[in-house]
Computed example of a mutant assay.
Amino acid sequence: MTTDRKQIFDQIKKLMEKYEPPFIARSDFDSRYELWSEKEIEIDGRKRKEVYFAGLIIQSNYVGFYFMPVYTDSSLKNVFEPELLSTLKGKSCFHIKKLDKKLLSQIKKSLETGFKLYKKRGWI
């Protein structure tokens, strides 16, 4: 188990990079990483030129993992296992303070599920 924020960031980033492409890394820095779909789409009748997928940011005492698919389909919370769900603060931000193989596996599964949802909706 690691509590080093940079190691946590790097391990989760490695999982996220597998989705690039089709997603575009808009921010790709040592402490911030964001994936976006830059496809023109329509969500609830509103045209958009982009949609946010997921991001990471190193904060003072945790790594923030932002997972936007949960905003578009709240039933996704049902796929989160207890360990990952316990780090959820608010609607879509997970505060990761400790990372082990089990939690990393749950983040990987969430990314896969979110990717399938975006693909199914034609957002990527």
Rank of each mutant, 00 (worst) to 15 (best):
I8E: 06
Q59L: 09
G55S: 12
K91Q: 15
I12F: 12
F65I: 09
F53D: 07
L84T: 02
E112C: 02
E81H: 10
M68Y: 14
A54L: 01
Q7A: 14
L117C: 03
E20M: 05
I8T: 06
S92G: 15
K18N: 10
S92K: 15
F94Q: 04
N78C: 06
M68W: 08
S27V: 08
D28N: 15
Y66I: 13
S105P: 01
T3C: 03
Q11I: 02
F115E: 03
F9S: 03
Y52G: 01
M1T: 07
D44C: 03
R32H: 10
E42I: 11
E112Q: 04
A25D: 05
S31E: 09
I57M: 10
S75I: 07
Y19T: 03
K47W: 08
S27I: 10
L76H: 10
K18I: 01
M16S: 07
F29M: 11
T113S: 03
P82Y: 03
C93G: 05
L85W: 01
I8D: 12
D4T: 04
E20A: 12
L56P: 07
E40I: 00
I24T: 15
I58R: 07
Y62S: 09
F65D: 01
Y33D: 01
D28Q: 14
K108R: 13
R5T: 08
F9H: 06
E50D: 14
K77I: 08
I57V: 08
V79S: 14
F115L: 13
I96G: 04
R48C: 11
T87C: 10
I57H: 06
M68V: 06
K116W: 04
F9W: 06
Q106H: 13
L15V: 05
K120Y: 14
T3I: 05
F23R: 00
F67N: 01
K6I: 14
K120M: 12
V79L: 13
R121M: 14
E83V: 05
W36R: 00
T113P: 00
L15A: 10
L104K: 14
R26L: 13
K39S: 01
N78H: 12
S110C: 15
E17G: 04
K120H: 11
F53I: 06
D44V: 05
K49D: 08
E112H: 00
P82G: 04
S37F: 03
E17N: 11
K97Y: 05
E34V: 14
P69H: 03
I43G: 07
P69Y: 05
N61K: 13
L85F: 05
Y118C: 09
A25C: 02
S74H: 09
S74E: 15
L15T: 12
L103K: 03
E40P: 11
K109Q: 12
L85E: 14
E17P: 00
F115N: 00
D100G: 14
P22M: 04
Y71Q: 08
S75H: 10
K77P: 00
